[in-house]
Computed example of a mutant assay.
Amino acid sequence: MERRKVDILCVQETRWKVSKAHSIGAGFKLFYYGVDSKRNGVGVVLKEEFVRNVLEVKRVSDRVMSLKLEIEGVMLNVVSGYAPQVGCELEEKERFWSELDEVMESIPMGERVVIGADFNGHVGEENTGDEEVMGKFGVKERNLEGQMVVDFAKRMDMAVINTYFQKREEHRVTYKSGGRRTQKLRQALGGQLVLPDDWETTVEVIRETGRKVLGVSSGRRKEDKETWWWNEEVQDSIQRKRLAKKKWDMDRTEENRQEYKKSQRRVKREVSKAKQKAYDELYTRLDTRE
């Protein structure tokens, strides 16, 4: 982390037992979770200067954990994940994705998310039909585990960032012995990049990835959406509306359209109720509407 000037690092397969946070020297602090010293375990390492910015730590399981930080007014959620290997039972794989879904659904709209994970799969080199979530520089052919990554990215409106640029062969191989080579998917969803050594190339990669994934803005600044009065009901209804919108975008049936419209009306009702409740409580504390 010192050599590469990394401030936040997600680690997997740590095999560290119990739940702790402690300094590990050189100005870094480790947050981790594990239940068995022989398998699994996930963690997040932070530069000490950002530790005071940590608002919440969620240790979901020995395969999924997340940290919420506030940095210069921006809410950043960092999720560390370790997907079951190819040979594991389907039930274990489904449990991992269910846990990851729950973490994502608990994050309010407007907050930024980066997932640094070992997904143990191949999204493949072919991206036809999946251009909105991945580029053409994946690895080998897509397998079941890779398809799960692509499906998750679509559900959450994210992108597999390091498939948008080409990597050198030595950066694509994760294990080599004799004439055998293994290429395993260690991807980042949202915003983490595996960067080339050359700075000019790095800058162009970031710009091009930003254009492809985020688009180009008009340049006019938008006012931040007022969200201080949001509650769980509002967040839940907004998440349901997002899922309904994605379903409508993927399959434009009348049933899906009606469900999306229904979810929009539900959000309006919940927003109105939450606003009124929040202002009533504010007026009570102030003893006057004026």
Rank of each mutant, 00 (worst) to 15 (best):
60 V>M: 04
100 L>C: 03
186 R>G: 15
201 T>Q: 15
69 L>A: 02
19 S>L: 12
197 D>N: 12
133 V>W: 03
185 L>I: 07
58 K>D: 14
271 V>S: 09
186 R>Q: 05
172 R>K: 05
65 M>K: 08
216 V>K: 13
213 V>W: 06
85 Q>C: 15
154 K>C: 02
263 S>A: 15
260 Y>T: 06
281 E>M: 11
10 C>L: 05
136 K>P: 15
225 K>V: 09
140 K>C: 10
80 S>I: 12
77 N>F: 02
169 E>F: 13
187 Q>L: 12
192 Q>M: 11
107 I>T: 01
161 I>R: 00
98 S>P: 08
74 V>K: 10
248 W>Q: 10
243 L>M: 08
101 D>C: 07
114 V>N: 02
26 A>H: 14
195 L>E: 11
252 R>Y: 08
55 L>I: 13
51 V>P: 04
198 D>Q: 06
57 V>F: 03
255 E>F: 01
227 T>D: 15
38 K>H: 14
117 A>F: 04
47 K>N: 12
36 D>P: 08
150 V>W: 00
118 D>H: 10
42 V>K: 02
79 V>S: 01
265 R>S: 06
169 E>C: 01
148 M>G: 10
49 E>Y: 14
160 V>R: 00
121 G>E: 01
201 T>P: 07
198 D>L: 13
279 Y>L: 14
50 F>T: 03
255 E>V: 07
151 D>S: 00
217 S>D: 12
146 G>C: 03
71 I>T: 03
108 P>M: 07
84 P>A: 10
117 A>Y: 01
155 R>H: 08
134 M>Y: 04
148 M>K: 14
189 L>M: 04
121 G>F: 02
95 R>F: 04
103 V>N: 05
161 I>W: 00
251 D>C: 14
224 D>H: 08
269 R>H: 06
252 R>K: 13
219 G>C: 06
65 M>Y: 05
67 L>T: 00
262 K>N: 14
125 E>V: 14
4 R>W: 06
68 K>Q: 09
108 P>V: 04
1 M>F: 09
42 V>W: 10
277 K>P: 05
260 Y>D: 06
230 W>R: 08
59 R>Y: 03
177 S>I: 07
142 R>K: 06
216 V>T: 12
